[in-house]
């Protein structure tokens, strides 16, 4: 298609130069009309028809089977809510990272959260919008293991540019092991960081399964330590980045709903960050 486009563009340019350099009467009226008819009408019609017929099969969506893994992805300003729904088991909630088994069809149910977003992983599939009040379905099929970058493609506000996520395609066995681990609650509810997390009221918005924190406004932070990035795919997960985000999220992500906590000491923030990182 691209090659064809280049050829057509060059041919047209050459034709224009020829036409404007030709002497008067180089083309009779009759020949001119024939040129318009063939080059302007018939040839493009045939080419476009062929192109359409050739591409129609690609418009057919991948059919999903009833027992395929289903992941509900919901777009929020400016992060991604993920809920894994394997056939015959309870859902597992996570955020900002999508893990997929290689070689299996996965049904993504793309739901609209607050405003319009669009789910786009260039290396995996085309994009699909997330519309409040609707659920769109996209069936994906990863063919090789690896990391892909995902990004919101529909303008959604101040930090639209900073609404990314990671996709990790894994061998099926590794995926199953990961999902089983992800399903387990954390076992560090007694840690100092956990107590501070609770004391600062973080649980009002965030959930960490295995502790009392069960908020649903912000991303689920259970097993945050297993994710590669912080703040929805925009920074590598390090203690320093995490501390900075905890104390002043709007500075990292303008327009984020998480407020700044200037009153929180660096020590407390570091303790919380370290604890979150240990939950893998």
């Amino acid at each position: 298609m691209v090659l064809g486009a280049v050829v057509i563009a060059l041919a047209l340019a050459a034709l224009m130069v020829t036409a404007s350099r030709s002497r008067e009467g180089a083309l009779t009226h009759r020949q001119g009309m024939r040129l318009v008819l063939w080059a302007g009408g018939i040839v493009p019609s045939v080419v476009l028809l062929a192109l359409l017929i050739a591409t129609l099969p690609a418009m057919r969506p991948i059919r999903a089977a009833g027992d395929d893994l289903r992941v509900t992805v919901t777009g929020e300003q400016f992060w991604w809510r993920m809920a894994y729904q394997p056939a015959g088991a309870a859902a597992v909630t996570s955020a900002n990272e999508l893990r997929l088994p290689v070689g299996r069809d996965v049904v993504l149910a793309l739901a609209g959260g607050d405003v319009l977003h669009s789910f786009w992983v260039p290396g995996l599939a085309g994009k699909m919008d997330m519309v409040p009040g609707r659920t769109n379905t996209l069936v994906v099929h990863a063919t090789r293991a690896g990391r892909f970058r995902g990004q919101c493609a529909e303008f959604c506000g101040l930090s639209h540019a900073l609404m990314a996520f990671d996709v990790v395609a894994m061998e099926p066995a590794a995926f199953d092991a990961w999902l089983a681990a992800e399903r387990r609650p954390v076992i560090t509810a007694a840690a100092a960081g956990a107590r501070l997390f609770d004391a600062h009221g973080c649980g009002g918005c965030h959930a960490v399964r295995g502790t009392g924190a069960a908020g649903a406004i912000g991303p689920d932070l259970t097993h945050l330590g297993a994710r590669a990035t912080v703040a929805a795919g925009i920074q590598p997960l390090t203690t320093a980045n995490l501390v900075r985000f905890i104390r002043d999220a709007p500075a990292v992500k303008p327009g984020a709903r998480m407020p700044a906590y200037p009153q929180m000491s660096a020590t407390d923030a570091t303790a919380i960050a370290r604890w979150l990182e240990t939950n893998r």
Binding site: T18, A19, E24, Q31
Partner: peptide, 11 residues
Amino acid sequence: FAFIATLWAGR
């Protein structure tokens, strides 16, 4: 193409 043909046919 009508423009191109006109240029071609004209001076």
